[in-house]
Write a protein that binds this DNA or RNA. Sequence first.
RNA 1: GGUUCGGUAGCUCAGCUGGAUAGAGCAUCAGCCUUCUAAGCUGAGGGUCAUUGGUUCGAAUCCAAUCCGAAUCACCA
Length: 591
Amino acid sequence: MSIVKSIQQATIRSLHSLFENDFSEKDFQINQTKPEFEGDYTIVLFSLVKSLKLSPDEIGNKLGTELLSKQPELFSSYNIIKGFLNVTINDEYWIAFLQKNYHDICFGKQAMNGKKVMVEYSSPNTNKPLHLGHLRNNFLGWSVAEILKANGYEVLKSCIVNDRGIHICKSMIAWQLFANGATPQSTQTKGDHFVGDYYVKFNDAYKQQIAELKNKGMSEAEAEKNAPIMLQTQQMLLDWEAGKPEVMELWEKMNHWVYEGFEETYKKIGCDFDKTYYESNTYLLGKDIVQEGLQKNVFHKKDDGSVWIDLTPDGLDEKLVLRKDGTSVYITQDIGLAKQKYDQYKIDQSIYVIGDEQNYHMKVLKLIAQKLGLPYADDIYHLSYGMVELPTGKMKSREGTVVDADDIVAEMIATAKQHTEALGKVKDFSEEDLKHLYNTIGLGAMKFYLLRVDPKKKMIFNPEESIDFHGFTGPFVQYTYARIKSILRKEPTLEKNNNYSALLPLEKEVIFNLEQFPSIIIEAAKELNPSCIANYLFNVAKTFNSLYAELSISNAESHEKKQLRLYIAVMTSNVLQSGMQLLGIQMPERM
RNA sequence: GGUUCGGUAGCUCAGCUGGAUAGAGCAUCAGCCUUCUAAGCUGAGGGUCAUUGGUUCGAAUCCAAUCCGAAUCACCA
């Protein structure tokens, strides 16, 4: 049980025996005591003043005395300042906590709860390489999956690949027109970048044709519709849907190039999936559900044959679910895929990691599912995250301001290399170990940077600040870990010893922080927010670094103090490691 | 225009189930390596928590209005 819970229960019991009333944890608050006051936790009593008809000081005095006399093993002293009851936790309690948990590498994790969750994330288009925004998505999805696992869920990571549609045909047409048979191999280009280049070439050619048509007197809209390259692309989409062999062959060839590129990137950044869905297989799903909806009168058919749902009573609009030609739209497929996921895996919850520009779409999806009375409707959850922007504004592929995922990862790793070499601490490492270390640090910096802010907020990616490896960063936490490991390599054995003198403030502060780890993991899962973990880990590392600077571990003033600090060091390293693991970040033994 | 989200230090962000003098990091300035890794530590300066009103013992936090910014409202995906 967490210490806050223990204090809550002790307070409830004491209030009951003092005032003969029943209280719950909602009747008072427990906060961390501010550093300028003496104590560990503060019980805020103002809310009890009315019902007890006593002043906060009177309640505080009675409660403080009662707590101390009833549970001397938990509380060692109290004081009251301006109506706040500050209690100090007994050192014995902290030490017992430390001894019990310091070696437990599963500390903070919950037992399996029998619930199954699917986390869908990444969801790339196969017409261009991944960019910075995808990285936020990937790291978020991965981390949320890990956090849910730590909370006892069985987690399935899934990915829907958007591998068909007009955007894919654009790359294909451009390749046919401009490539002269070039391939990733022949040009020494990573497959996804190769295909992405043709997507750009399409847009260049398209723009040029529009300009030409406008010169001939067409309006902008007309020109956009009638540009030959666009007409060709639309024809290709029809051919694809008809399964025309040469189109399918080209499509498969180019997708294959992209997948090779993606695989390399995913491997590099440490992402994987338990199940990959391809839109080319799922885009027809959901049509049967539309029929069902028509029968249930949830949907209605217009004169032209198109099928709609009226969501205006819910404050939304009228939405199309089936085109007049009978083909499905985005939302139709998503309804179908949601059903397939549920049928196939019997999941209890379905989490979609998708950018906040699709908030409306996801709201509609859930609402339609609810109106259809689908059993999984309420278990659809959109984990919406904000866009990644540059200090100069939004990333725009057309203006060439997109930060490419492979580029930025490579840059972070190169920076890690540069720092490591400048510091010269690992000169005895082999080439292979060095490479691994640079990856660990560079990716650690990248992941931490993208995960340390609240997912739902948009974030500014500042290239200069992001390559800083000092302060509130991944390498800072990694460094703290490596320092501890360095000590532990020299001090391998721990003795059992129960003879500890009073805790020094810094010792207590570190233990105090470590104790919160389980609560933080629960909070992170509740909010689906890895930034809780990142902020917490930074705090733990910072506090430990203060202790490290002020107090010697190996040359502690006494044998007992040395043992105690070794316990603290071991537990800190364990918490840092398992916490960073929840963010998908590895820890170096040395750096 | 409707809906949704956001506005906290020069910059990037915490804090938001109401609690004591609003916190970090970066940047700036001043210190600390003959002793466990200085990717570190200690300290200083820096704030009208967008604005106004309300709720109350108490508001960055809750409510309302206003201002500013973003996303979205396709027979695109």
